[in-house]
Amino acid sequence: MTEPTTEFPPPKILTLSSTHKPILITQGAEGRLYKTPSPFQPNQFCALKYRPPKPYRHPILDARLTKARISSEAKVLDRCYREGVPVPAVLAKDAAAGWMMIEWIEGEPVRVGINTWLGERPEDDAALDTTQEDETPLIDLMKRMGVAVGALHRTGVVHGDLTTSNMMLRPWADDRLPNGHGDKTEKAKAVAGDVVVIDFGLAMQSQSDEDRAVDLYVLERAFASTHPRAERLFHHILDSYRESFKKAPGVLHKLEDVRMRGRKRSMLG
């Protein structure tokens, strides 16, 4: 049991009977995400988030940390869902065993949508093509991202790891396209859908401008490095964020300080 294997052993819960084999979706430093049939919703899938035991930690401490982290993530999701922030619902959990099952969100990460939209254009093109084409669908997506982050912050939750990979684009039920644009191209479809925020593994409850500003700063930096060709449009996220709750202007003000000094606060006096 303790001998190292090349393939990670799945959690016990996934070794019990199921009609479909669980699929390992991602694997982070802290945990793994599987796609597996929902335990009690026929013909539906769910996401199982599993935090395996860490052999390098003392077992008692390890058990306690794992349990606390699963519970805290579940609590944050519950709070967000109640408040109407678009997040996956929790279906079941066993914090002591290190797993929770959450609603499976259909669609692609926002990262993929934006990259599909941007297509294969060469990078140095960015400055040139501002007048070339109608960017409304992409700008519309950016605005929806700002609204989603604003809703999250209004609720008193900071995400801790906002990136375009931690936001999903859940397809709209109808084939509606952004902003009645009427542009039925594949491109516009790539950036259509509701923004659903995922992965609250580093989230915490906070109402402080500082924490919220750092959240935005992390997103800004991640966005710039993931989508350099769309960086000039990032301000649309902040513009719609500004309108999304009362304290947002203060947060954006703070963001300027954070930009000056970076994510970490100085520890020197």
């Binding site: 579940a74 609590k75 519950d78 929770m100 609603e103």
Partner: peptide, 13 residues
């Protein structure tokens, strides 16, 4: 339905 299921899953938290 989701709120109820979540409440049950988070029982005691």
């Amino acid at each position: 339905e989701s709120l109820a299921i979540m409440g049950m899953a988070l029982r005691g938290l």
